[in-house]
Amino acid sequence: MIANIVIGGVIFSYAGWMLVRHIKKSSKGKCASCSLADNCQGSCTPYQQENRI
């Protein structure tokens, strides 16, 4: 019974952490939260493309 409570607690804690992480990333915007934002050649980062020249 204790094992079930611990496993359930771990699952709900992880789900809560992922939900908070998703909300924080989505509030930054599409390109700001992208893991490739520093190396992106897309249209979202015109400032970074101008400074590379």
Rank of each mutant, 00 (worst) to 15 (best):
R21H: 13
C31F: 09
Q48W: 00
A3Q: 09
G42D: 11
C31S: 06
I53A: 11
L19W: 02
I2E: 10
W17T: 13
L19A: 12
I2Y: 04
N39F: 12
G9D: 02
H22M: 09
S26N: 08
S35V: 00
I23T: 02
A3L: 14
N4Q: 13
G8A: 07
S35K: 04
I11E: 02
Q48K: 11
I7W: 03
T45F: 00
C44M: 07
S27V: 06
E50D: 10
I11D: 02
I7C: 03
I11N: 14
K28L: 15
C34Y: 01
Y47K: 01
S33M: 02
V20I: 15
W17M: 15
Q41F: 05
C40V: 01
A37L: 06
G16Y: 03
S27N: 08
V20R: 04
Q41Y: 08
I11S: 10
A15V: 07
M18Q: 14
S26A: 10
K24M: 00
A37F: 10
A15M: 13
L36Y: 12
L19M: 10
I5P: 00
I7G: 10
L36H: 14
Q41H: 13
Q41V: 06
I11V: 15
A37H: 05
C34P: 03
C34E: 03
H22C: 13
A15W: 03
V10M: 15
C40L: 03
F12S: 11
Q49F: 11
S27D: 06
K28S: 12
S26G: 05
N39H: 13
L36P: 00
G9A: 08
I11M: 08
S43W: 08
H22D: 00
H22I: 07
T45L: 07
G29R: 01
E50T: 05
A3W: 07
V6M: 07
Q48T: 05
C40I: 01
G42R: 03
S33I: 02
H22F: 14
S13H: 03
I5N: 08
G42C: 15
V20L: 15
K25D: 06
Y47I: 07
Y47Q: 11
G42T: 06
N51M: 14
V6P: 03
Y14S: 14
A3H: 09
F12C: 11
R21N: 05
G8M: 02
M18G: 00
Y14D: 00
T45A: 12
C34D: 05
P46M: 05
K25Q: 13
P46G: 01
I7S: 10
N4K: 12
K24R: 13
T45Q: 14
Y14C: 11
W17Q: 07
F12M: 13
P46L: 05
P46S: 05
M18V: 10
I11W: 01
G42P: 04
K28V: 05
K30H: 09
Q48M: 08
S33C: 11
Y47D: 07
V20W: 05
K25G: 07
E50A: 14
I53Y: 00
Q48N: 03
W17Y: 15
K30P: 04
N39W: 10
S13R: 02
N4T: 06
K25W: 02
Q48E: 15
Y14T: 09
S43Q: 13
N51Y: 12
Q49A: 15
K25H: 03
D38S: 08
I53W: 00
G16S: 12
W17G: 07
Q49D: 14
K24I: 04
Q48G: 00
A37S: 13
T45P: 04
N4W: 00
K30S: 15
S33Y: 01
